[in-house]
């Protein structure tokens, strides 16, 4: 069952429709409701390796629906601590719960200051209004 539209206000956003939840020097990353809605039901998650490095603004993986594929753009830089295996096994989890069960990776931040460059919910809503 796809989730209904929502954008939590405790997250930081990237204009490529990715979100980050920062806790200390770690962050959990995922894609927004808008991104999963645009793609449709996901059928594949190409995840990075645990231990690999992700760079702000660069792709760390891919998600695919039947007729579309999208790069996952990392909003922050760091080292991959964990990949959400539930999404690897059942990619539709992202459609069902994009901010909860459908998270994609957890990273240890290498440049915590980068959070200053992310969007607040209000700023992200402006991006959505133009999309």
């Amino acid at each position: 069952m796809p989730a209904s539209e929502s954008y939590p206000d405790d997250l930081l956003y990237h204009p490529e429709h990715d979100w980050a939840r920062i806790e200390g020097d770690e962050a959990t990353l995922g894609v927004t409701w808008f991104a999963q809605d645009a793609l449709g039901e996901l059928v594949h998650y190409e995840a990075p390796d645990v231990g690999s490095t992700v760079t702000r603004g660069s792709s760390y993986g891919e998600v695919e629906s039947v007729k579309a594929v999208s790069d996952l753009i990392s909003p922050l830089s760091g080292e991959v601590l964990e990949v959400n295996e539930k999404v690897v096994d059942a990619p539709e989890t992202v459609n069902e719960d994009p901010y909860g069960e459908g998270w994609l990776i957890r990273i240890r931040l290498s440049s915590p200051d980068e959070r200053e460059q992310l969007l607040s919910l209000d700023d992200y809503r402006k991006v959505l209004a133009e999309a």
Partner: peptide, 14 residues
């Protein structure tokens, strides 16, 4: 009217 109805492409890909 076709030999099959609409096909589940999500299932095929997943």
């Amino acid at each position: 009217s076709r030999p099959v109805r609409r096909l589940d492409e999500v299932r095929a890909a997943k």
